[in-house]
């Protein structure tokens, strides 16, 4: 896809989303749409580190929930507008990414992964003990009835998420084709050879971790307003971590489009399963799809399509 067409499509998507929003009066559409967009944002964020550099982050829930809880805390203190909360959430999670990364990225990738898994557990313990944001009993957040642009607040949240998701995908796409993208791909394929080719591997991995963490924090910041009641078990729900990993792996990790496809597909599958079977079953489906794809089609849907077209990439 050429640059012009990509940007035209992105802009069109935002416009169509906005128009649809004006026409739709059913609040459920915004709730569902927000959920899909949130996962596109999370999956894209994960993929910048996991897909491009090959470092698996199991701690999505930690970065995401941190963004949400920074938002709860700031809202309680000053009640600033949503964009400020989003920036604050992003900065907080980016800093955690920087800290985690600088401590563990010198080691093999598997140790980074284990550390992120542990991070999710420890941050849940911290939040559970932080009484100011509700501790273990959770926090109620007052969702304004009307958004600053007119329309309901859910509608406003939906647009905000739409803009962030499109921006994140654009960022991922830019990274993929840049010098940074080639460096990350070299790290993913062979770290020692990347070093020997002059790639400052540690620096690039840190950069990717911070970018990925920041986007996850930004994704979490509007969450308290979306759910209106937030407690640690729901903010740190394992479903976030599993979905965020499953989506890029199902869609295809090497490219920006993979996480988008995976996020749309898996959200639709889960929404359908939730209605027709049960909520436990839909998580099982995600797990099976993920394991099925990584064992049978390691390059995801994108890889399958390319294979059909006869391109080996």
């Amino acid at each position: 896809m050429s640059n012009l067409r990509f940007w035209a499509c992105g802009l069109l998507l935002v416009l169509v989303g906005w128009l649809l929003g004006r026409l739709v009066s059913n609040e459920y559409a915004f709730f569902a749409g927000y959920s899909v967009l949130q996962y596109i944002l999370l999956a894209t964020a994960w993929n910048i580190l996991g897909g491009y550099a090959g470092y698996v982050n199991f701690g999505t829930a930690a970065f995401f929930a941190l963004g949400a809880y920074v938002s709860v805390a700031l809202n309680k203190l000053y009640a600033p507008p949503l964009p400020v909360l989003i920036v604050a959430g992003g900065v907080a999670s980016g800093l955690i990414g920087l800290l985690m990364g600088s401590l563990t990225l010198k080691l093999r990738g598997v140790f980074f992964s284990i550390a992120t898994l542990a991070l999710a557990i420890v941050s849940q313990a911290v939040i559970t003990n932080w009484e100011f944001v509700g501790g273990s009993s959770g926090a109620y957040v007052l969702r304004p009835r009307v958004g600053p642009l007119g329309g309901s607040y859910i509608e406003y949240l939906f647009y905000t998420m739409l803009v962030m998701a499109v921006a994140a995908v654009a960022l991922a796409r830019t990274v993929e084709r840049s010098k940074l993208g080639f460096g990350l791909a070299a790290i993913r394929d062979d770290e020692a050879a990347a070093e020997a080719s002059g790639v400052p591997t540690l620096k690039l991995k840190l950069l990717a971790t911070v970018a990925s963490g920041t986007l996850m924090g930004m994704a979490g910041a509007p969450l308290p307003f979306y759910v209106a009641y937030l407690d640690p078990p729901s903010a740190f729900n394992l479903a976030y971590a599993v979905n965020t990993i499953a989506m890029p792996l199902v869609g295809g990790t090497g490219t920006w489009i993979g996480p988008v496809l995976g996020a749309i597909l898996l959200t639709v599958v889960q929404e359908t399963a939730m209605v027709t079977i049960s909520s436990a079953a839909n998580l099982l489906i995600v797990g099976l799809l993920m394991v099925g794809f990584i064992t049978l089609a390691p390059n995801g849907i994108v890889g399958m399509v390319r294979k059909l077209r006869g391109d080996r990439r």
Binding site: G54, V56, S113, L284, V291
Partner: peptide, 19 residues
């Protein structure tokens, strides 16, 4: 392809077993 895919594989097994 052990690193990335293998980790995700075991994470998936963890999750499937639990559900």
């Amino acid at each position: 392809e052990a690193p990335l895919q293998g980790l995700a594989f075991f994470f998936g097994i963890l999750f499937i077993t639990e559900v």
